[in-house]
Simulated assay, not measured.
Amino acid sequence: MIKIGDFNKLKVKRKADFGYFLDGKTNNTKDDILLHNRLLGKNNINIGDEVKAFIFKDSEDRIAATLIEPKAKVGEIAMLKVVAHTKIGSFIDIGLPKDILVPFKARTYDLEKGEKYPFYIYVDKSNRLAATTDIDTYLTTDHEYNVGDTVTGVVYGFQTNNSAMIVVNNKYAGVILHNEYFTELKPGQELNLKVIKIYEDGKLGLSPRQNRKEELDVLESSIMSYLEGNDGFMRFNDKSTPEEIYTVFNSSKKNFKRALGVLMKKNLIIQNSEGTYLK
């Protein structure tokens, strides 16, 4: 049986000027599968050879083959670029002659043309390749990561409490709690993350934050730069609201207060009720 959206080992049955026909595994030659010359890649083949061909439906809705490896196959999650928006949905580049459809009902967030997002590839009811951003149920928690490991993850949505849902290595489920990030995140955004917890179900608890010392060093520099650029004064101090600290310094109030404390111990700043001054 031919598997659409996957690699099949098929015998080269006959040749034509424009390509080859592969055995469609039926007794009807009408079911033979076209492998066009432009989809041979760097392969040289002959009648009788067995080839590993990727099977898909072409722009004329015919079963076709390619020896050029696509960017993903059915059952996989991959970062793929949005190339067009139409009345029936969006199209993404999977590395085939024909881009594949992301139906409106298969979109869980807005897609921007030219941007990449994680998509799950499947075969629709008409045996065409299609994709969805609803990847959550296709992720696994069967991993070998440990607390302290660093990983690369991609945002694919948000929980109702604004915790960010993350896919790691196009395969594993993770989450960044809402109090672990202080900048705006968006679907498709790639992040360097640290594993800070592994939940009972195996899901990865992640954080984009640096360790405390590195984070404070960066924040200390930001505070000093701000003061130096504003004639040695800022209206912010350890009594400022968390919201305005986050807006200006991209920091939690807790870390902001720690950084101010470090700078005062270094005898670089002083505070009063009006704000903070360079010494």
Rank of each mutant, 00 (worst) to 15 (best):
236 F>H: 01
92 I>H: 14
130 A>I: 13
270 I>G: 13
9 K>A: 13
164 A>N: 04
229 G>Y: 02
264 M>K: 04
78 A>F: 05
37 N>A: 09
219 L>S: 02
88 I>W: 15
236 F>G: 00
164 A>P: 10
277 Y>Q: 12
152 T>G: 02
174 G>C: 12
78 A>D: 06
166 I>W: 08
39 L>D: 15
189 Q>F: 13
8 N>D: 01
242 P>H: 04
116 K>L: 09
240 S>Q: 03
202 G>L: 07
39 L>A: 10
101 L>S: 07
160 T>P: 03
78 A>V: 11
163 S>Y: 11
158 F>C: 01
101 L>D: 12
242 P>Q: 00
81 K>H: 06
148 G>L: 01
243 E>D: 12
125 K>F: 00
144 E>N: 04
204 L>T: 15
171 K>S: 14
264 M>G: 06
42 K>I: 07
176 I>D: 11
34 L>V: 12
70 P>N: 07
36 H>P: 10
41 G>N: 01
49 D>T: 13
68 I>E: 01
103 P>E: 05
155 V>P: 00
117 Y>S: 15
240 S>E: 02
100 I>N: 09
190 E>C: 05
71 K>E: 12
171 K>M: 04
156 Y>P: 04
98 K>E: 14
157 G>D: 11
80 L>I: 07
117 Y>H: 13
160 T>G: 03
206 L>N: 03
253 K>I: 02
32 D>M: 15
202 G>Q: 08
275 G>K: 09
162 N>E: 12
88 I>L: 09
187 P>N: 09
225 S>A: 15
117 Y>F: 14
113 K>Q: 12
193 L>V: 01
255 N>G: 11
161 N>H: 15
146 N>C: 07
207 S>H: 01
194 K>Y: 13
108 T>K: 09
258 R>Q: 07
273 S>Y: 00
119 F>R: 13
206 L>H: 11
269 I>M: 11
211 N>R: 00
26 T>A: 12
228 E>Y: 10
58 D>G: 01
191 L>G: 11
252 S>F: 12
151 V>I: 07
49 D>S: 09
124 D>E: 06
12 V>T: 12
170 N>S: 01
269 I>S: 04
43 N>P: 04
28 N>I: 08
136 D>L: 14
250 N>P: 05
12 V>M: 13
141 T>W: 07
9 K>W: 10
177 L>N: 15
255 N>T: 10
176 I>H: 10
103 P>N: 00
169 N>P: 10
184 E>D: 13
7 F>L: 00
175 V>E: 14
166 I>F: 09
111 L>D: 06
78 A>H: 08
202 G>M: 13
47 I>Q: 10
166 I>H: 13
131 A>F: 04
65 A>C: 11
12 V>S: 12
67 L>H: 02
149 D>M: 02
20 Y>A: 05
25 K>Y: 14
108 T>R: 14
121 I>S: 01
131 A>H: 11
216 L>C: 00
57 K>D: 12
227 L>A: 08
145 Y>L: 00
276 T>I: 07
19 G>P: 05
258 R>P: 08
137 T>F: 11
131 A>Y: 09
142 D>Q: 13
279 K>N: 03
269 I>D: 08
235 R>A: 14
29 T>V: 14
102 V>Q: 05
179 N>F: 00
256 F>C: 04
170 N>H: 03
255 N>K: 11
87 K>W: 06
56 F>W: 14
16 A>H: 07
194 K>A: 07
23 D>Q: 14
13 K>Y: 14
174 G>D: 15
17 D>E: 15
106 A>L: 06
265 K>H: 01
